Simulated assay, not measured.
Amino acid sequence: MAGRFAPRPTRTTVRGGDVVAPGGVPRQASPAAGRVRRWVPGGVLDLGLVLGPLRRGPGDPTFRVDADGAVWRASLTPVGPGTLRVSAHGGEVRGEAWGPGAEWLLERLPDLLGAGDDPGAFVPRHRLVAVAQHRRPGLRLTRTGLVLESLIPSVLEQKVTTDEAYRAWRLLVRKFGVPAPGPGPVGGRMWVMPAPRAWALIPSWEWHRAGVDDKRASTILRAVRVAARLEQAGAMSAEDARARLEVVPGVGVWTSAETVQRSHGAADAVTVGDLHLPGIVGWALAGDRDADDSVMLSLLEPYAGQRHRAARLILLSGRTPARRAPKMPRGDIGKL
């Protein structure tokens, strides 16, 4: 889910977190071998659906998709930077990783691909949701176990257009992050997001150039000062993790939900406070494009415990109201 303006075809979150990850093409050999893990998922698995919500725009320097459908991710793990390449062929998943964080990433590969998720617990209550579930059998909810990795871009996405948020993430990661270890995909270098201290040392004018206002920048700075405490929330329940995140001034219910959906695979963490989601859910389930949060929550009540999954399926159904003009004009504080 997301709380930005004017969904575009490249926006992964508003479409339910799907990226095109074609399959059936033989895997290309990597230029430099990394550590490898093979895993057989129980049932159908769609890499694009599972990992799509982790992509922050088409130019995300931490996320790439190969022509053969393999997904690359660059992450800052608790033991250092790591690059992970995930491909699926013949019912088997192959993970290959490089860098100090390679073993950490491979150890958690099943969780990343939804091994801890239980889609069988979901019972559709609306025909539209049932059809969407039938058409997307490979949907699983990812769990990265990394909190800041999801928190910081979610803060950047607060109350701005999609393009503004993605641009800020792209510029800041490329300028203050580190090159991802390993060979990388064809077509561009990848980057690992900055470490907490690097975020803390970004000068005010660089936030300004990236189009990030003082409020969002200050929220990120407060979060990275307690980075260790926030990362500990990765081992907590989603509810306890949200409570800890919301202690940080500037992190509210919208941001905490967006974070734990990815870090914890939280099936019930429905995004409240979103600009678009209530209207999309209201339109899909009741023909009400002007639904607010209270109406949305009422409509999703039959899915208690699985409301985030229900909302994703609604987004993936494609049944959305006609677009309206943004209520807030796009701004660029970097030009002020």
Rank of each mutant, 00 (worst) to 15 (best):
E92W: 02
H89T: 13
E96W: 08
A88T: 13
L76D: 15
L76Y: 13
V79D: 06
A70K: 14
H89V: 15
F122Q: 03
G69L: 09
S87L: 09
V93A: 01
P110Q: 04
A130N: 07
V93D: 02
L109D: 12
R108D: 06
G95L: 07
G95A: 03
H126E: 06
L106N: 07
R94C: 08
E92H: 08
G120V: 13
A102W: 00
R73W: 03
D118L: 14
P78V: 05
V129Q: 00
L106W: 08
P124M: 05
G114Q: 02
L76M: 14
P119M: 15
T77D: 03
A115V: 02
V93E: 00
P100I: 04
F122M: 01
G99W: 01
P124S: 06
R108L: 01
A115T: 03
W104L: 05
P110T: 04
D117H: 03
R127A: 10
L76C: 13
G82E: 01
E96A: 11
A130Q: 07
W98Y: 12
E107L: 11
V71M: 09
P110D: 04
G116E: 09
S87T: 14
G120I: 15
A115P: 02
A102Q: 07
T83V: 11
D118M: 12
R94G: 06
G90Q: 00
D111T: 06
E107R: 13
G80Y: 06
L105Q: 15
G101C: 14
D117A: 11
G120N: 14
G120Y: 15
G101R: 13
S75Q: 15
S87I: 05
G91L: 04
V123A: 12
W98N: 12
